[in-house]
């Protein structure tokens, strides 16, 4: 699972959970892959991100490196910055671990890179 996906996921679908965001990450296995860099794609994606959540996720995995805590100005023209964001949101992947609902503590297992967000009958 990419951190870009994590940036969108919520456990709000559980009965009684009001926000369910962001999901805490408890990763046992993280990998880094290589994805083609597309500066236009990254620039367009940045405003759509919840930046603090991305930063926090990267930090919890020890992958934050020298990513700035806040989005920098004129990032569209800063290829170095775009590449860092590209790496964090697309190339860092959680292979095994859990996503945890911030309100209930419900764990959603990630196996072989696939988060299982399926709920039981009594949770809906």
């Amino acid at each position: 699972m990419k951190l870009l996906t994590h940036n969108m996921l919520t456990s709000k679908c559980i009965k009684g959970v009001s926000v369910g965001y962001p999901l805490k990450i408890n990763a046992s296995d993280v990998k880094e892959t290589e994805i083609d860099f597309n500066p236009e794609f990254v620039s367009k994606m940045i405003p759509k991100l919840d930046w603090p959540v991305l930063y926090e996720a990267a930090d919890s995995l020890g992958k934050v490196g020298d990513l700035p805590k806040n989005i920098i100005e004129n990032f569209e023209n800063d290829e170095d910055f775009l590449k860092k964001v590209h790496h964090i949101m697309l190339e860092v992947e959680i292979v095994n671990g859990n996503l945890i609902c911030p309100e209930t503590g419900r764990k959603f297992p990630i196996n072989n890179g696939i988060p299982n967000m399926l709920l039981n009958e009594d949770e809906i």
Binding site: M1, K2, T5, M8, L9, T10, S11, K12, C13, Y21, I114, P115, N116, M117, L118, L119, I124
Partner: peptide, 14 residues
């Protein structure tokens, strides 16, 4: 491919 398991009645997206 980038995927996750979910039921279409409860999509875990904001």
């Amino acid at each position: 491919l980038e995927i996750f398991a979910a039921n279409c009645l409860k999509i875990p997206i904001k």
